[in-house]
Computed example of a mutant assay.
Amino acid sequence: MKIKTNLLLSVITVFTLASCKNEAKQDQTETPTDTVVEQKQEFKNQAHELVHQMTQRVGDYSKLASKKDVVYTYTYQTPDGKTDIITEKYIFNGELSYGAYQKHERTLSDLEGLIEQGYDGNEFWIKLNNTPLNDPAALKKAAFNRPTNFYWFTMMQKLLDPGLQYDYISEQTINNKAYDVVKVSFDPKNEKPSDIYQLYINKETKLVDQFLFTVMDFGRTEPMLMVMEYEQVDDLLIPTKRKYKKSNWDAEVTDAPWILVNWTDIKFNNGLTKADFKK
């Protein structure tokens, strides 16, 4: 009887040990799959981190690109009252761009009728009243306007593009608001001077309330000052009201009149295709 009892205890012990080993193995195999390791965002410096925080506030490029495309009205008015009114269309993947100038008092003002500009991913083109133009000056205008207008719309997100350089300039108070001043510059290509953006990031809201910029394509090394107001469109904050004029690197405001820019009727996910951007 004693022998039987000992045998029974031995069998129970073996099964218990085996069960514990199996549970241990199961724990070892399940733990890694259940653990999510988050990759820490790496920043080049403080200025880079501040720009990243700003994009999280307005909506980063992945959020913008998830909208697929956008259509909106672009109104541009110079101090003399001359106005351009353009229907802008973009596909974010490939940066395709189209503009229909319903009114063009400052852009190719010598032409009459509907001006259309486009970039289909390979070619810049321009048409007048549905007839293609081959004039070099007109084509040059399209080659400048199409990527420039696209960039202005996506700028806040694209300030995190690869290859950018970030420098922290200073803290500054303007109209009782505290700002971090950050310089963003581009790696020069073929020793060609590139544009500079000096951002004034509101410490409280994390938004860029204003920025200084150069336009090296036109040889403008002295900065222009852009001041902006934001509008909530879907889950993005878009700087839809903008005005700018000549300034200096201290962002001093003069009595000179502003150039006014407004983006209205912004609609995402319109089902645009590449065919919509062909000449």
Rank of each mutant, 00 (worst) to 15 (best):
Ser194Val: 15
Leu225Gln: 00
Phe144Ile: 05
Tyr72Gly: 04
Arg242Asp: 04
Glu23Val: 01
Val233Ile: 07
Met224Phe: 11
Val215Phe: 11
Leu64His: 05
Asp84Ile: 08
Glu252Asp: 10
Gly219Ile: 07
Gln165Met: 12
Val261Leu: 13
Asn45Asp: 12
Met54Gln: 06
Phe92Ala: 06
Thr87Glu: 07
Ile85Ser: 07
Lys140His: 14
Lys177Met: 11
Asn134Gln: 13
Glu95Arg: 15
Ala137His: 11
Asn269Trp: 07
Gln46Ser: 15
Asn262Tyr: 05
Asn176Trp: 08
Glu123Trp: 08
Pro257Gly: 04
Leu7Gln: 12
Lys68Trp: 08
Asp195Tyr: 10
Lys278Val: 11
Pro223His: 02
Ala142Gln: 00
Val37Ala: 11
Asn6Leu: 15
His52Ser: 15
Asn145Ile: 06
Pro162Ile: 09
Ile259Met: 01
Lys140Phe: 14
Val11Tyr: 11
Leu50Ala: 08
Gly99Ala: 03
Val215Thr: 09
Asp180Gln: 04
Thr148Tyr: 07
Asn130Ala: 13
Tyr119Glu: 00
Gly94Ile: 02
Gly219Val: 04
Lys274Phe: 07
Leu207Gln: 01
Lys278Ala: 09
Val182Asp: 02
Pro132Glu: 05
Trp152Ala: 00
Asp69Val: 03
Lys267Leu: 04
Glu88Val: 06
Leu225Cys: 02
Phe213Tyr: 13
Tyr151Phe: 14
Lys4Ala: 14
Thr221Tyr: 12
Thr107Leu: 13
Ala137Tyr: 12
Arg57Ser: 05
Leu164Asn: 01
Pro239Ser: 03
Glu42Asn: 12
Trp258Arg: 08
Leu50Asn: 01
Val14Ser: 09
Asp110Tyr: 12
Lys89Met: 12
Leu139Asn: 07
Glu30Ile: 10
